[in-house]
Write a protein that binds this DNA or RNA. Structure first.
Lengths: 225, 225
DNA sequence: ATGCGCTTCAAACGTATGTTTCAAACAGAC
DNA sequence: GTCTGTTTGAAACATACGTTTGAAGCGCAT
């Protein structure tokens, strides 16, 4: 075997199992047996299970954040001076994700699923790791969003960004299950690209909705038991 | 102690811990020590950890689904014949959730977080349990949504409903944290009702967005490393 | 007071986990 | 070929988990 083919085999197996089952539900023994590698190899090469989780994220997030920076650079250059629109900003993000060179056909959906899990599973160490490693592209995205929605108050924008994040993270984190359901119910095949293509207009429309109505429409009172 | 104060103490502790940390990450020992109850009590009263998870969901989902049925009844009666609008349907759901009698001030956000986890953490048994116990109000909500958005294809509607679910579950489940951040950053106080009042227009706008654009806008090509 | 369900309790069970150990196998330089 | 540092291997470690056990405690009708 090559120098450390082992490292990649572990990362491949871990990535897939984490995406399928979550972090706590995936044991090192599952990973090493799927990777056809000795159990001790994980601790030898990575140090701990948590460090392995970080390595899995770093492997796709580092090139992704570089791609994203490029996309933002090009976008801002193309708009020279004027701030990019909301649609342009969201598409830049989406395309960067979708066009990332994939290791296999499941690549993009694993990628998305892992991002969803990072938000959803409250693994403190992961949160900290991601925040300190990838804060820059994140802040830049936030700044672009702000410039693209000058009509919103800070408070409205804040909440709507949370809504966008939620819709995205949630959908992506269960995208496999949702695709299966759709396949069985309506017999429709769906790719991650198509999901993204449906998600972006939804987000853009929500983001640009008319003023939040702070009081429910007249006559909508609901009886409570 | 009353007859089985123990059962409620276990449910209270379990509910909060599950919402905080997820199911696999919460051990029976954490639950019983938080509830100040003997470890064996869980298996004595509920039979197993999975059954406890079901009981936690049943405790709030059963009254909620009754409240929701009432709200839908009243709504359909008020509209006599004509299908309720999307806004009306969403408000009926939202108000039913917000007006549920809460055990404490964190009630609504725990409730939401648990629903999110139920979707997200791939606990097969939970999925099955929820589907067979609460399929009726769920189907009814889906039917109302369908009648309120006749312009959407089934596939578009399906995905947009997932986006709504995601935005809602995610936001509500972390609403405590998000409220705190907002308080510190902008000095703004926010109630759950206000969040809901911002969320509903966002969802309605996303749901009614123009046709999903399946191809990115011209000129949005992104350079890839 | 006695006996009978139901509930609590401390302790243990068997299993699975992440991690460590240390000897064996290996690769490359001399 | 021999030595050296790196990687693999089988086995064990300590710990945590969900669950089970059997005795003790309790309220209450008889």
């Amino acid at each position: 075997m090559a120098q450390s083919d082992t490292v990649d085999r572990i990362l491949d197996a871990a990535e897939e199992l984490f995406a399928d089952r979550g972090f706590s539900e995936t044991s090192l023994r599952m990973i090493t047996s799927k990777a056809k590698v000795n159990l001790a190899a994980v601790n030898y090469h990575f140090g701990s299970k948590n460090a392995l989780i970080h390595a899995v994220f770093a492997r796709f997030l580092t090139p992704f954040s570089a791609t994203l920076e490029n996309a933002f650079d090009e976008l801002e250059e193309r708009c020279d001076g004027k701030p990019p629109t909301l649609n342009q900003t969201l598409w830049a993000l989406t395309e960067s994700a979708v066009r990332m060179p994939q290791r296999n056909e499941k690549g993009i959906s694993i990628f998305m699923r892992l991002l969803g899990l990072a938000y959803t599973q409250s693994q403190g160490h992961l949160r900290k790791f991601l925040e300190q490693e990838y804060s820059e592209p994140f802040s830049r995205f936030m700044r672009l969003l702000k410039e693209a929605t000058p009509q919103l108050s800070s408070v409205d924008r804040y909440w709507r960004i949370q809504f966008m994040l939620g819709a995205t993270a949630f959908t992506m984190s269960s995208s496999d299950a949702l695709r299966d359901i759709l396949q069985n119910k309506l017999g429709v095949e769906t790719t991650v690209q198509e999901i993204a293509a449906r998600l972006v207009p939804f987000l853009a429309a929500g983001m640009q909705a008319e003023d939040a109505m702070l009081i429910p429409p007249a006559g909508s009172k609901v009886s409570v038991a």
